[in-house]
Design a protein around this nucleic acid. Structure first.
Lengths: 238, 238, 238, 238
DNA sequence: TCGTAACCGAGACGGTACGTCTGGTCTTTTT
DNA sequence: AAAAAGACCAGACGTACCGTCTCGGTTACGA
């Protein structure tokens, strides 16, 4: 079952709120301009990557003055963010399978497919790159893409806690960083392929852990040393 | 116990191998020039980030002609890569604690500390960003930083398998993507802090899993399917 | 009596015709930028000569981006040509003295003075030098400086023919090449000074010839064979 | 009759005198290197003009280190000067025809042919251009090419004075500036062709003058105009 | 027979300037 | 007042040469 995408994710993320919807004096903004800019940006992004998407060429290809672009989006990153959203958001699904494992697998696989099977993947990588050098874009990215998505994923974990599948003490953020961090890792470094199988594998590992603890009668021995190691060995090596 | 850093990590990563150590005709390259360029690059990187490190200013600050910079490093990214290595590699430790948990915790914490407590952190983020737009740099990054490090970390897991701590069927790459993916995730998105505690938490989660599987007496049905799920269900969606 | 300078000589020689005076879309070119560039170029030309007038420094001194310079002038030579015109054209006179000798002397002396007494002299030499290596500049030079000036000088000779001072068969171009060639010769080689006296001497020699042949009733036959040699002996030595 | 070329014109003009012929300690300079440099310079000069003759490429094409070039010639201009001499000097003739008109015509025509029919023409123009920006080259040019040649031409006039063809009061330098100035003028500005005919025309104009000399009340005016016509009708057919 | 001195090819050195490109802003006319 | 257009200032890009300076090696002479 596909749940709708939160509003913030829909479109025009980087744009200013543009205040009142209408009744402003002067010539109204051409809706064509905005969409042709977005189309040009999307096309360029797909063709040459974010680095090749210069505002100059976006404007030229959209048949629009540069000022018109800057009037709507404050920076290249913001424009790219919106172009990305158009490609990305519609491909994300939030099925409710009734189990934590199912929900997580569905979330990760749909993310992974959006990233590998559409133009969104390279846009996403480019955006994260751009956000490293543009703090404003980093904020916009977090507020308008990252957090809304994370909110949805946190809900999956909350539901599992509510169902009693997992303990209430689980740190949802840490779990999500593990799950999605692994996917982003392969996306950004490209050292290994990003597949459905990998997504499922990630879910399995996070839920079950690496050590199956074949039998765990006196399981205390597992956690106690672990807890001790938690802080001590860290200090040892620096 | 701190083990030495693998060779590939040491220095001059972006530079060509320069073949034989000498006996080339012509004036040999000045070692001073090379190191002053690297120093200038490192300083600029720390001051203004990768985007602010222009080749122009690196050359000026190093008291060197631009051609001298380009003779040694083919691109800004390659230079930044070497500058990063100088800062980063010496801060990584590889203690041998005797346990998988201890080894992993030590590895993650030392990485986390190198990244948060030295200039290497922002360099690292900038480099990964740059690698998204410069495929040559991406290759250099993988070959000269990523893979050597991963090799070391894979050895930690192999040792654990050899000791019988974990089963031989564990996919080391997937495990490492989980562990380090989580750290990179926080580094690149900055949504939550990157602490010693988080590093330890990540190790604990990956080793033990989210679900403590409350008891395990009747849990047979829990673990068996879980073990099966490790690989099987993933294949179902692919 | 000083006659105005022909239009082509006035200014902006290297620049495109700039078409209609206005009504073009887009921001019009700043007239200030153009004139400050020209001023900077003129100053640099006078200070360091054409070789020292780098586009880089012209732009910097004019407080203007390099692209703004290149938008107006396609090359260093074209810019120098305009800077030269500004200095040179206002110093040329075209008096009408009523006699060929008087007109030519006035023309040569005013040229000689413009060249020796203002900054125009070294600019002129530099421009001719530059035109040797830049064919486009050579064309611009001929069309926009050389030919307009020569037209005026040809008119002096035509007027003398009309007055019956000299025969109609005189080759005006050859005569002008003699007259001005001599001046340019001293300017470019600097082997002897370029003075008012020399200018007058040149006119006298061209009008009267070297051999006054005081009375030459029988002497004429001496020259006749020489006239036969006019073409023949040349073939002898190559 | 062809007279030998003065020594200064022969070769290696730009080079220092190199003092004693030998007995210097150290390895003697390779004569091959010198000649291959000169050959490479000549070829490049002919191919691309002086502006395209970079020391870098001369050295590379000659299979020689740059320092070897600079050891022999202090500047690009000096090298070009020697390359030019090699092409130019052998083409100049100094026939003794017995008459001023004949000698001058021969001198001018041989100069004109050397300039238009060999590679020397564009080299010459380029050298004069270069000399405008390099004072040392200007001096070398004057001392080693210009003055020796002028000396020879001055001798033609002196001989005519001695023969009584012209008066002793003639300013030989002014006459030569007229004669050769006209040729250089056409060479450097290229506004009209440089032909045998033009050379002869120049001689005629300078010897006879443009004006029929209204004085000469006696019948001399019959022959004098005839002498003048010697050149005037020539002008008609250009 | 050996220094020693000047040469050799090669190529790196610190610089300067090139002409192009992009970023983000500003100024026109047109709608 | 917003549109398209395009000029504005600024400055980095990577390249080409400049003239000088090491290198390791090679001649030739004088001690």
């Amino acid at each position: 079952m596909v749940i709708g995408i939160p509003e913030g994710l829909e479109a025009e993320v980087g744009r200013g709120p543009q205040a009142e919807p209408s009744a402003r004096p002067g010539r109204p903004r051409s809706p064509e301009a905005g969409s042709s800019i977005l189309a040009a940006a999307t096309a360029l992004l797909a063709e040459k990557g974010l680095a090749g998407m210069s505002m100059e060429e976006v404007a030229a290809r959209a048949g629009v003055g540069k000022a018109t672009v800057y009037r709507r989006w404050p920076s290249r990153g913001a424009l790219a963010l919106d172009a990305f959203m158009g490609e990305f958001s519609s491909h994300l699904a939030s099925p409710d399978t009734g189990s934590l494992r199912g929900d997580l697998t569905a979330a990760l696989v749909s993310w992974e497919r959006a990233v590998t099977m559409t133009r969104a993947g390279s846009m996403l990588a480019g955006l994260i790159a751009e956000a490293q050098r543009d703090p404003k874009l980093a904020v916009a990215w977090r507020q308008q893409v990252f957090e809304p998505l994370r909110q949805r994923h946190r809900a999956i974990i909350s539901a599992a806690v509510a169902r009693g599948e997992i303990g209430a003490g689980v740190d949802a953020d840490a779990v999500l960083d593990l799950l999605f961090g692994a996917l982003y890792h392969r996306l950004l470094h490209g050292h290994l392929p990003l597949t459905d199988h990998f997504a499922a594998q990630v879910v399995a590992l996070v839920l079950d852990g690496v050590a199956p603890r074949p039998a765990a009668p006196a399981g205390a021995e597992d956690t106690a040393p672990a807890g001790a190691e938690d802080t001590a060995p860290a200090g040892a090596e620096d």
